[in-house]
Each structure stands twice: as structure tokens, then as C-alpha cells.
Design a protein around this nucleic acid. Structure first.
Lengths: 226, 226
DNA sequence: AAGATCCGGAACTCCACAGTATCGTATAGA
DNA sequence: TCTATACGATACTGTGGAGTTCCGGATCTT
């Protein structure tokens, strides 16, 4: 094809080829992205190589030139998954733990997590058979979120907002676990209300803070932005 | 075959047949049990009708005489799944919430839950495509456990051990959710230590009780205003 | 322009499994 | 013993998808 849709992915086809022998497979990103999409929509078993190829506007042969099997392709796709904006440097810092936790609830973030959960659902059948897949999936999908929570909670400990005796290692998994459960099994939406309920009904009480009221004297409760 | 293994399932084949036209499919229980076993071991997509038939020492035709398709068989198997010993009448009553929660941790119960989780993992790929399956699975596998937790917590509220302001509806889902996450995604064992950690590190603190000690003052938790 | 390289598309093979059909046999009732 | 019924085993068919091969065309190199 001579031209690409302008909207989708930027034309990266004819970039590196001038380096003579350097011809790596420049279509990899599109293909991996397509694989993730199909994975989220149909699950691993429902997904066919043709679907991925078609979605990526690639030939099936191209996929097999790069990955030896469907399994490898999916593992690669999950491993190369972009992680979203969960870098510790970019996490909110509102002065209170509740403020931070609430500030992490953004439409963008929710949507991102939802898509990841769909992917996770599609991978479930594969997890028990392929341990490396289980590992890759956990690392790419849920661990980052748990780590972000742990960071926020640890900072709250450091500033004296919550007690160091709190079981942060366990508590930072509450939100990811219950969100996963809600999406994968209950099939209910993980929306803002649900997350607020988790924060005020589980996390903060467990940390010795009251739900949506300002605890001791520490000010700065971020207004739940409506 | 003339004889059956004595150990396995009691010979229920030649029981009802004397009722003339009453010949219902007396092998159903064995077949459904076999289906659940295979489901737990290989997942829905890896499971074949032959596996189930072989496991149940039945012919493939027998399965198709009873269920029109693989889908229906699995749905039936999950729906008919025995629920374990979670009847409210038989729940522990030790006098304290912590005592009750800890008393629910029994090897039998853990093992049972683990098997259910394996089945749930095998069903995941089916859930999005078959809503009735999602519903059946949730009802049969996790809801009973959440309901048991809710019952124990509500009793604790009634006896004044914890505040009525606590978000029991959410908290009764903490254990099932985090156990599911740990089994399905982290692939770690849900053992006694983990469950105790949940009770003392999340549930009781969130309910205003201290982890492993009895809160002398039993301070009423201030209701989340507004 | 000529040659080389890579890609998209499509046709092909092979195999596993869903679902069907057939047959021999065990059991129950007469 | 004779008949009927349900079952187990097995052979068979059809289909869908993994993986392979081939070809025409596009792009870059020389």
C-alpha cells in the first residue's frame, strides 16, 4: 500500500530500511498493538493469527517471519505492553493520602486499567499452562498499580500520616485485587464511585484514617472534584 | 465392563431403570463431576468432550444424548456444582468476629476454594462471551463465600462489636477478591498465613478493630459524615 | 534501469476437535 | 430365554485455525 491512514499510527515503514542490513522488522509495534487489541476483544483462544494480521494490515506470513508461534507473539505483546503513566515521579502529591489516592482516579487511568483487565481476562486460560506468561502478565498489568499504591502509602508513613505498623504490603494490593475481581468475575464497571468506596470504606479505615473526613489535624483533603 | 472400581463413585447405574419409562440419565452426576475436574485442569478451551467422557467412563454419545453441546454441558456442570459447607446455620460462632473469621480457615475449606478457583480460571475465557455463564459462575463460586463473610460481620454489628457505619457490603468482598487475585493472577497459594494476614492487616483494622488484640475500648468508629 | 529485499495477500496442508452414526453388549422386564 | 433399551466404544465427517508456501508489487540500492 502506498499510503496509510493519517489518523492511525504514524508511517514508520520506510524509516530504517536505508541502513542497508539493518532491516529490523519495523512493523512490530503495530502488530503487537493489534495483538493486544484482539486479545482484549476475543481472548487468547478466540484470537486467530489472521485477525491480528488483518488488524495490523499485515500478512500472516509477516507475523510468522518474526514470531515462531502464536504463543510467542502473545507473550511478546504482553511483555512489551506500555505501562501507562504510573511512574513514581509522576504520581500525585496532594499532601494527604486520600488526596493522592483520589487524584489517581482519572478517566484516562480508569479506561487504561479496564483495557488491561480485558487483556488479563483473555490471558487467563493461558496462565496456568505458561508460567512465564503468568509472570509477564502480572508484571505488566497489575504490579505497577500496586507499586504506585505502595509508594503513596509509604510516603504517608514517612510524613507521619499513618502508622508504620500498617500492613502496606497487603493493603497496596487491595485496590488492584478488588478491581480485578469486579471486572473479571462480577463483570461490573470499575468506576469512580467504586474506587471511592474502596478508598473510604476499606483502605483509609484499615490505615487508621477516617473515610472522607479529615483525620487528626492534617489539612488538605483534596476536594472530590465533581 | 462388568465391574466398577469400588473406590470411586458408588454404582448408581442400575438403580432407576426398573421404573420402565423413567430411565433418566443416571450417569449425570459422574459426568458433571468429570466435566468440572477436566475444566479445572485444562480450562474450557483445552477441554475436549472425549476427555470428559473418558474421565467419566462414559461414551461420547452418552454426553450428547443429554446435552446438546459442550457449552451447555459446562454451564450445567457449574450450575450444579456443590457449594461446600457455607450454610449460614453451620458457620462458626465464637463470640468475636476475629474468632469467627479465623475459624473459617480450615484445610477442607481452603482446598475447596482452591479447586473452585481453578474452575473459575478455566471459565474465564467463556465469561465475556456467555453472560449466563458469568452469572452462574459468580453465584456458585464466590458469592457464597462473600455472603458468609457478610453474615459474620452483620452479626458482629448486631452484637455491637463493630460500628454499623462500616461498609460491610464492600468489606465482605475483600477476602474473596484478594484470594481470587492471588490464585488466578499471582499464582501464589492461598494458605492460612495469607488469610490471617488479610484478617489482621485489612479486615479488622478497616472495621475499627485492632489486628490480633482485642480493642479494649471498642471505640465506636465515627460514621463517615456527609 | 536493474537488481535485491521485504512485505501483503492468498492459496495450501495438516491436524485437532465438535458433533454424528453405528454396533456390540449389559441389563431389566416379560 | 427373548426383547427392548440404554450405554460404551469406535469409526466417521466437517470445520476452523495453525503454520507454510508462493507470488506480485513496492521500495531502496547501485
Amino acid at each position: 500500500m502506498t499510503q496509510l491512514e493519517p489518523g492511525a499510527v504514524a508511517d514508520s515503514t520506510a524509516v530504517e530500511t536505508k541502513l542497508g542490513r539493518k532491516r529490523d522488522h519495523t512493523r512490530d509495534p503495530e502488530i503487537l498493538a493489534a495483538a493486544l487489541e484482539v486479545l482484549a476483544e476475543t481472548g487468547f483462544d478466540g484470537m486467530t493469527i489472521d485477525m491480528v494480521a488483518t488488524r495490523a494490515k499485515a500478512g500472516k506470513a509477516t507475523l510468522y517471519r518474526r514470531w515462531p508461534s502464536k504463543n510467542e507473539l502473545v507473550i511478546d505483546a504482553v511483555a512489551c505492553m506500555k505501562l501507562g503513566d504510573l511512574d513514581q515521579a509522576r504520581l500525585p502529591d496532594t499532601g494527604t493520602l486520600r488526596g493522592d489516592l483520589v487524584a489517581m482516579i482519572k478517566p484516562r487511568s480508569i479506561e487504561d486499567a479496564e483495557k488491561k483487565m480485558q487483556i488479563m481476562a483473555g490471558l487467563m486460560s493461558m496462565l496456568s499452562a505458561t508460567p512465564e506468561m503468568a509472570h509477564a502478565a502480572n508484571n505488566a498489568i497489575v504490579k505497577p498499580r500496586a507499586e504506585a499504591n505502595r509508594f503513596l502509602m509509604q510516603r504517608a508513613v514517612d510524613r507521619g500520616e499513618i502508622s508504620p505498623a500498617c500492613d502496606i504490603d497487603t493493603l497496596c494490593l487491595v485496590t488492584p485485587s478488588m478491581a480485578a475481581y469486579r471486572t473479571l468475575i462480577e463483570r461490573k464497571p470499575v468506576d469512580r464511585d467504586f474506587l471511592i468506596t474502596l478508598i473510604d470504606g476499606v483502605l483509609l479505615p484499615a490505615l487508621g484514617l477516617r473515610g472522607d473526613a479529615d483525620p487528626a489535624g492534617r489539612g488538605k483533603v483534596a476536594p472530590p472534584a465533581s
